[in-house]
Design a protein around this nucleic acid. Sequence first.
DNA 1: CCCCACCATAATAATCATTACTATTTTAAT
DNA 2: ATTAAAATAGTAATGATTATTATGGTGGGG
Lengths: 127, 127
Amino acid sequence: MKKFSRQRQAILECLKNTNCHPSAGWLYDNVRKEIPNISLGTVYRNLAELSQSGDILSFTPGDGTERFDGNTKPHYHFYCSSCRSVIDVDIPTIEDLDRKAAETLGCEISYHNLIFYGICRNCRESQ
Amino acid sequence: MKKFSRQRQAILECLKNTNCHPSAGWLYDNVRKEIPNISLGTVYRNLAELSQSGDILSFTPGDGTERFDGNTKPHYHFYCSSCRSVIDVDIPTIEDLDRKAAETLGCEISYHNLIFYGICRNCRESQ
DNA sequence: CCCCACCATAATAATCATTACTATTTTAAT
DNA sequence: ATTAAAATAGTAATGATTATTATGGTGGGG
């Protein structure tokens, strides 16, 4: 049976209260403010479990880190190739895509992941 | 000035002649059949350069590896969560998405990357 | 309320992909 | 052929993630 843990709760809270799509390392640094001796392995394990159970989302922008998202409503992301920040893209998701792809491939699709790449406004302006 | 190298040529050839969307490690193993003492660093460096120059594409399915593609025509991918293989998805790319996202975000978008997730036909049947 | 089996944790070591470094070799322009 | 720039092989180092293990916390049954 799955048991309650203060650590998992704190990680989930931290992720729900930010919109910066952090990595495991960022969450580790920030949860440590509340639980100073939390272990990095604990952060990784809980993020994997929460992701597995569907309580959070995860994706890889391609900079060598996995990013997590407390917002489980399907949506797309923008990744700034300059500052490595991730921003939500508020356009409707195309649910029909999964059906089309499944038809073409002849297999079932669980979901899709869409990331836009470019330079964010901050970075563009501060050049 | 950019100089010719047998190694870069072999890497590009190898990538153009497969449809398996390999990782750097796979390319290293396979190019070694032709150039046995090629260095892994050489493979990584050339893949980065070829990707930068637009001669190849790259993406990260999220299993901790970067995958490369000799087909530079924009298209989408399917990743099998069971066998970790990548398959091209032959549906038209939605170029309009970049414009829509750019409008919403107020910044320029260079491109987008779309990956479908599920279990491929082979894996489904062999269960 | 206390015991116990089980789950989760902290701390650390190990792994894996990728990148950095450096001395040597290759390329191509003169 | 000479030479400077570019690329390489081999190796070390990095950084993110995963595995290990002994210890501590949780919650149900007695």
